[in-house]
Design a protein around this nucleic acid. Structure first.
Lengths: 219, 219
DNA sequence: ATTATTATTTAGACAAACTTAAATAATTTC
DNA sequence: GAAATTATTTAAGTTTGTCTAAATAATAAT
C-alpha cells in the first residue's frame, strides 16, 4: 500500500496513543498531531477505507493488523535514523527527533535494512525505546515507570516519552540524559511536584507535567 | 526562505537544464519534471514571486542569484547522500539516484554539514559530479565530453548525465561503470551509433542517444 | 431526567500542485 | 509575408489535506 506522509503520521500517532488496546479519541489524535478534530474525522474515513484502522462514528479509532504493521515499519525507520544521527553524526539525543521525523518517510526496505546492518542492527534507540525488526517484532520495553509514579528512591533515566523540544532543552540544561542517575528527595502532595537530585548538581524541583514524561527504572 | 519539495525540484531542474546561461523553456522543464507545460507556467509565476527565478511570459526561465544558491544547496544534499549510500551502505552507483532524490529534501544545515564531515568532506559524488561546499562553491567539472563527441580512441567513463534507471541498468548489464576504460572501435555515420569495446568484454554498439549520456575523458 | 457541557461529525471553503481543453503568441515553412 | 505548426499561457476543474462554523451526539451535572 502506498501511503502519503500525512497518512503515515496518523498511523504512527494512533499507534503511539493506543498503548494497550483502548480506542484513540478524535480529540486526542488531533492534539497529538497538532491539527483539528474535523481533519482527524476526514482522515479516519480515508484510513478506514484503506483498511488500516477500524473506525465507527463516535467510537474512536483502533489500528487494524495491517495498520499496526505499517506503524511498526514507520517506528523502525524513525528509531534507526535516530541511532544513525547519534552514533554516526554525533548529534545529541534531544536533537534527533525532528530530523528522524523527516527521514522516516523515505520508504525503502532496502535502505532501511542496510542502514540497520550498518549500525550493527541495534535493538534500542538513543531514547531507550526498542527498535522493531524487519518483521515488526521488538523486545518488550523494559519495566519502566514515569518519574511521577516511581516508588524507588534511586533511579536511572531510561527514556523521555514526550519528545517536545522544550522539554528536551530543559532536561539538557539540567544535565539530565539517558542513563542519568537520580535520587528522589521529596514528593510534594499539593501539586505533585517532585524534588530530585542529580549527582554533583543542586537539587531541583520538577512539575508533575515534566515528571510524567521522564521514564525511569529502579537502580 | 521555506520552499516546498515541489519548489525545490523545480529549482533543481532549472539549474540542471540551464547549463551556461541560456533560458530554460517551459516545455523542456515540463519534460524534465514529467509534468505538463501548464503546471510549469503556474509554478514559474510562484517562483518569480519568490524572486528565485526571472521569468517573463514566453521568454523562458533563468535562476536568480538566490535561486542558484538554493539549487546548489539541493545539489549538495543530493550528492552527499549519494556518497553516503554508496560508501557506507554499499549501494551500487546506479541505485542511489532515486533514494537521494528523497533524502535531499530533508533541510537541515547541521545534518548536511555533519554528514559531509562523516564522509570525509568528499568533493565528487559516485557519478563523478562535483559536490558544492556549504557556500555553493565546487571544483569545476573536469574536462569531459559526451561519448558521441569524443575524439580520442581510449577513454574513461567519468559520469552519466541522464540518470534514468533504464540507462543505468543497461550500463550495468554491460559492465560499464564509473572509471571503466573504453576503446572506440568505429563510428557509424548513418545513425551516429558507436561501436565500443570494454576490456574482456565483447564489442557492443551503442546508439547516439546512449552515447550522448555517457561522459568520458581521454585516458 | 432535563439541562449543560464537551466531543464528534458534517458542510462548505481554501491552498498547493496538478490536470485537460481552449486561446493566444512565437516560430517555421513555403 | 501569410499559413501552418509548435510553444506557451489561460481558464476551469481535481485531489489531498487542511480549516472554520454549524449541527448533532455523547457525557456530565444538577
Amino acid at each position: 500500500m502506498n501511503l502519503s506522509v500525512a497518512e503515515e503520521n496518523y498511523i504512527k500517532a494512533i499507534y503511539k496513543l493506543q498503548e494497550g488496546e483502548q480506542a484513540v479519541t478524535t480529540n486526542a489524535l488531533a492534539y497529538e498531531l497538532e491539527t483539528k478534530p474535523a481533519s482527524v474525522t476526514d482522515m479516519a474515513k480515508k484510513l478506514k477505507e484503506k483498511k488500516l484502522i477500524s473506525y465507527e462514528k463516535y467510537q474512536g479509532i483502533t489500528l487494524s493488523p495491517e495498520g499496526r504493521k505499517t506503524a511498526l515499519q514507520v517506528v523502525r525507520r524513525h528509531r534507526l535514523w535516530e541511532c544513525f544521527l547519534v552514533d554516526k553524526l554525533s548529534f545529541s539525543w534531544e536533537e534527533v527527533h525532528e530530523l528522524a521525523e523527516e527521514l522516516e518517510h523515505v520508504r525503502s526496505e532496502k535502505l532501511i535494512s542496510r542502514l540497520s546492518d550498518f549500525l550493527g542492527n541495534p535493538v534500542i534507540d538513543p531514547h531507550g525505546d526498542p527498535i522493531p525488526d524487519a518483521n515488526g517484532r521488538m523486545t518488550k520495553p523494559r519495566p519502566q515507570t514515569s518519574l511521577d509514579q516511581a516508588n524507588a528512591k534511586r533511579l536511572v533515566v531510561t527514556a523521555v516519552s514526550d519528545q517536545s523540544s522544550a522539554l528536551l532543552a530543559f532536561l539538557n540544561a539540567k544535565s539530565i540524559k539517558l542513563g542519568t542517575q537520580l535520587e528522589i528527595i521529596a514528593h510534594y502532595e499539593f501539586d505533585n511536584s517532585i524534588e530530585i537530585k542529580v549527582k554533583n548538581q543542586p537539587a531541583i524541583t520538577i512539575s508533575e507535567q515534566v515528571a510524567k514524561n521522564i521514564m525511569v527504572r529502579p537502580l
